[in-house]
Design a protein around this nucleic acid. Structure first.
Lengths: 346, 346
DNA sequence: CCGACGGGCCGGAGCGCTCTCGGATCACAT
DNA sequence: ATGTGATCCGAGAGCGCTCCGGCCCGTCGG
């Protein structure tokens, strides 16, 4: 019924083309040293038989799998509540498939999942790993290293990336924040507040740092901690309005936060942007376009981040393969630029 | 430097434990026929050497890969603009890892990608496929069948699923729509309008059907086509207000559409829910909670859908393996119930 | 006490592929 | 005609695993 027809093997193709396995292998893998007429005969046999190489057998000898693990720590619900994840994945996918690599997705649930992931990585199924949202006490890097796999991290890791040549890709959160605040100042605002993100995430810390870079010596009361959610934005905005009723601008750590802030501002009768200008971060659609008024925000190239992560990893991979020595040294981390998107809120 | 230590093989473990490969294999795979003292010695050797079986070698002989492909058609940008995708993936992932299966993600870009996917599926890397948003002219089912792989589809396929025992999992879009409309009627509304989704998607068609089930013989002018976007919702709402200014309720095909409709209603000075009650679909967070007023909507169990898809597929797989004959017949499609979530808009 | 029987364990074959060698072939120069 | 490379191709080994057949040894009936 669902009985699979046994797929043709190299040998079958060889027999049909009247050559040896080795020759077929050469043709299939595009190495030279096979004269044209013969090669053509082989190609035809491949065609006729619908031959597709058996990856398992190939991996067994090459020790290459042409597969990359993408590891996402599930507790980061943020990853799931916004389209970031999907966009990044899309970038990764594009880059990987362009190089004939497969994407194996590992969503880790909790603590105990690490054992599973470790076993998997050690099991030699993949050639490398792409890892998201790493925390300081995360055993993942250790596991990956023990498995002898190269890895690239998404977002600056907690410990600053200073350790053992960790490679990561991140947006220029700090620079983006500076741009946002400068834009606000450029609008003639002077009492600029900041609602931070969840400060256990480096992106939130970096954005706060960027804010401070520009607002040196500002009233510390103008900074209130949020958590990247709309509810957090509302709460923080209320607090802000309470303590600093004179503020004329708000830089929110992300668009969701900004949306919450906007609601509270409206509730309190403040007009945006006339009374208070608001800038968000992420350019998270459709949120950013749907707020009232539409949000001025800092856009980052999410898909590009994903693609870049994959590219760095792949480069590392065939550096190992092709070169005898390190050709260009290990790859190093990359910070991607952001751009300010002007809409109506500031 | 990044030189990998050669991983221990079965043979190495066997040598250390003073037994044969076969015995180690038995112990590792949990088959019986090895007496306890020996088994223990083997287990210890495994431990000491940190042995992990080589999957490639194993697959080569078992023809099993313990991996499932998840195929998502990229053009469905809807998939990427809302968290559906991630949620479903999460459900799938949970179920798969619980059964020690890996998740290989295939995002297909366009037409020409099908060749790649086909090759991959035929390449014998995976044991089955989970497929999303299939269209009527999609070559995917053909490819999958040719590769001899079992598959489960997400969402009712275009051609109605009547063909060749296609198995799919879907929400009860029609029933959910009925609930929504009945709720509106229960509120005493009588001129209920519907803004549809993109009607080339079965979910949109089903929701429309559900609407019609309840509103038999209603003014056809009360149904306007949307496209699942907020902009589409705005456009449709304007049209509706133009042609049927007397309407007192709107059932929107999804929450984004509802959000657009809400904006236009406010713009026209209609109060929600006093003048016009609005119900959405999806309970897409954070949108549904953030609209003004918060949206009454129909919730579907996205994660459950994913999990169920995976479960059906896995069941199908080891039905092939274990049973001599069909134990319980082929699995069949499942429709998951929806629930109405009451908030302020209706 | 011997032969039959059976469960526990081992050796070997082989999954489909790659890759190293060495043999065959051919052009060209000797 | 023969040597000489360079070039092309094939045979064979083996990657790490599973599984089959058979050997060995313990057990029991006669």
């Amino acid at each position: 019924m669902s009985e699979t027809v046994p797929r043709p093997t190299l040998e079958a193709v060889a027999a049909r083309a009247g050559v040896s396995r080795a020759t077929v292998s050469r043709v299939v893998n595009g190495s030279d040293g096979v004269r044209e007429p013969l090669a053509e005969r082989v190609r035809q046999a491949v065609e006729e038989l619908g031959y597709v190489p058996n990856q398992a057998a190939r991996s067994l000898v090459t020790k290459r799998h042409d597969a990359i693990a993408v590891i996402v720590a599930e507790p980061e619900t943020r990853v799931f509540s916004d389209p970031f994840f999907a966009r990044q994945l899309r970038g990764i996918s594009k880059e990987l498939t362009a190089h004939d690599n497969q994407l194996v997705l590992l969503l880790t649930e909790g603590r105990d999942d690490h054992a599973r992931v470790g076993r998997y990585l050690a099991g030699g199924h993949v050639d490398g790993a792409l890892v998201f949202s790493l925390h300081i006490d995360d055993p993942l890097p250790e596991l990956i290293q023990r498995a002898g796999l190269p890895a690239v991290f998404g977002g600056r890791p907690d410990w600053g990336g200073g350790r053992g040549g960790v490679v990561y890709v991140d947006s220029d959160n700090r620079g983006g924040a500076r741009d946002a605040v400068r834009h606000l100042l450029g609008l003639g605002r002077s009492r600029v507040a900041h609602i931070t993100g969840a400060l256990d995430q480096t992106s939130a810390v970096d954005r706060l740092d960027g804010f401070r870079d520009v607002m040196v010596g500002a009233d510390p009361g103008l900074v209130v901690e949020g958590d990247f959610t709309a509810a957090g934005g509302e709460r923080a905005m209320r607090e802000l309005l309470d303590h600093c009723p004179g503020l004329d601008a708000v830089f929110a750590a992300n668009d969701l936060t900004a949306a919450g802030a906007l609601r509270v501002l409206r509730e309190h009768g403040r007009r945006v942007p006339d009374d208070v200008a608001v800038v968000g971060f992420d350019d998270m659609l459709p949120i950013a376009e749907q707020t009232d008024p539409p949000l001025t925000t800092v856009r980052q190239d999410i898909e590009g981040m994903g693609r870049l992560m994959a590219r760095l990893l792949l480069r590392d991979l065939d550096r190992d393969t092709t070169a005898d020595a390190a050709v260009g040294g290990s790859p190093s981390s990359v910070i991607l630029p952001t751009t300010l998107v002007r809409r109506a809120s500031a």
